[in-house]
């Protein structure tokens, strides 16, 4: 496993950040990590980066144990926080030089000076290439950069050492669509090169586009962690029924009575719903409703996500769990 989280619990006083959260990410995997704000994504990531101390539970990254080898974990990981906060008066270039120097020293202590010198040269070149591709002016003070450019600085700092593991926490916030495209290209290149990526987001279209596996976080715990295709192969279908105008209310009542539909939306004579029952039951419902037209499609990740979150009572707990 590339990332292995075992029963991680982190509380903020009485508020639970994550509770008994477990997650396995395979080597070279592009792992989505989705959930609404407050579900526990950032708390998990910050624990992985050693910024927060878990109350209980352990984790390892590339086999390095959190209790014994945090420095090795940090040497192997590129981290992009959701909000980039660097020294405001210093330029991105100074931050890059500092990051390279500290990583170089870490390499020198383990692999020797020659390896450290080679790393330094390569990292400097990588930082230049990344800055150029992202159109980032590295000479300007960080505080003078726009939010989007600050994010670009964060991307460069997280990727300049070409780490085997990338942990990205809501990485596209503030990036314009063109830069987003460049960033996605960079991620695909890294993924192709074998980098394991943990991609936390609540923008499901991004995750659907990039990731090959998705973990859904709810109330501080992972409630599902499967390949996107696997989610789609589940019984969940998105169904659209076009009813006769005079029978809309009756049709809607039949849908409700079936007990297998969620996210039911009615727009004039069109009823849309997520169906999670047996196909035979859907056929029976169709026969009763006798629609003018209908479509059955594979669900989007959003549909899958909402399926897991459709219980409104549970939703109310999110972000303020006790």
């Amino acid at each position: 496993m590339s990332i292995e989280v075992r029963e991680l619990t982190k509380k903020y006083g009485e508020i639970i950040g994550v509770e008994q959260l477990s997650l396995n990410v395979g080597i070279g995997q592009f792992q989505g990590f989705i959930g609404p704000n407050g579900a526990g994504k950032s708390t998990t990531i910050r624990c992985l980066m050693g910024l927060l101390t878990p109350d209980s539970g352990t984790f390892s990254i590339l086999g390095f144990d959190d209790k014994k080898a945090m420095a090795s974990i940090k040497a192997s990981v590129g981290y992009l926080p959701s909000e980039i906060r660097l020294y405001r008066k210093l330029s991105t270039q100074v931050h890059i030089a500092l990051a390279i120097a500290i990583r170089r020293d870490a390499i020198a202590s383990v692999q020797g000076k020659a390896a450290a010198a080679a790393f330094e040269k390569h990292a400097e070149q990588t930082a230049k290439t990344l800055s150029k591709r992202l159109s980032l002016d590295v000479q300007r003070p960080f505080g003078a950069l726009s939010f989007g450019n600050q994010k670009k600085a964060g991307i460069v700092l997280s990727m300049l050492h070409e780490p085997p593991v990338l942990i990205l926490d809501e990485p596209t916030g503030g990036l314009d669509p063109l830069v987003q495209e460049t960033f996605f290209e960079l991620l695909k290149e890294r993924h192709t090169a074998g980098t394991t990526i943990l991609y936390s987001s609540h923008i499901l279209s991004e995750v659907e586009r990039l990731c090959d596996k998705v973990a859904i976080v709810k109330s501080g715990n992972v409630i599902a962690n499967e390949a996107i295709e696997h989610f789609r192969q589940k019984r969940l279908k998105r169904v659209m029924l076009k009813c006769h105008e005079d029978r809309v209310a009756a049709c809607a009542a039949m849908v409700e009575q079936s007990g297998e539909a969620s996210r039911v939306q009615i727009d004039r004579n069109v009823i849309q719903m997520d169906w999670h029952g047996l196909p035979s039951k859907l056929t029976a419902l169709m026969t009763s409703i006798n629609p003018k037209d209908f479509t059955v499609t594979e669900p989007s990740l959003e549909s899958i996500f909402m399926h897991y979150y459709h219980d409104s009572a549970d939703d109310a707990e999110i972000g303020g769990r006790k």
Binding site: M49, K74, P81, I84, R85, Y87, L98, I102, L157, S158
Partner: peptide, 15 residues
């Protein structure tokens, strides 16, 4: 206060 620990502590240096 300024949030810069997030950068420094993401680098391979022990606390």
């Amino acid at each position: 206060i300024e949030g810069t620990y997030e950068f420094v502590l993401s680098l391979p240096v022990s606390r």
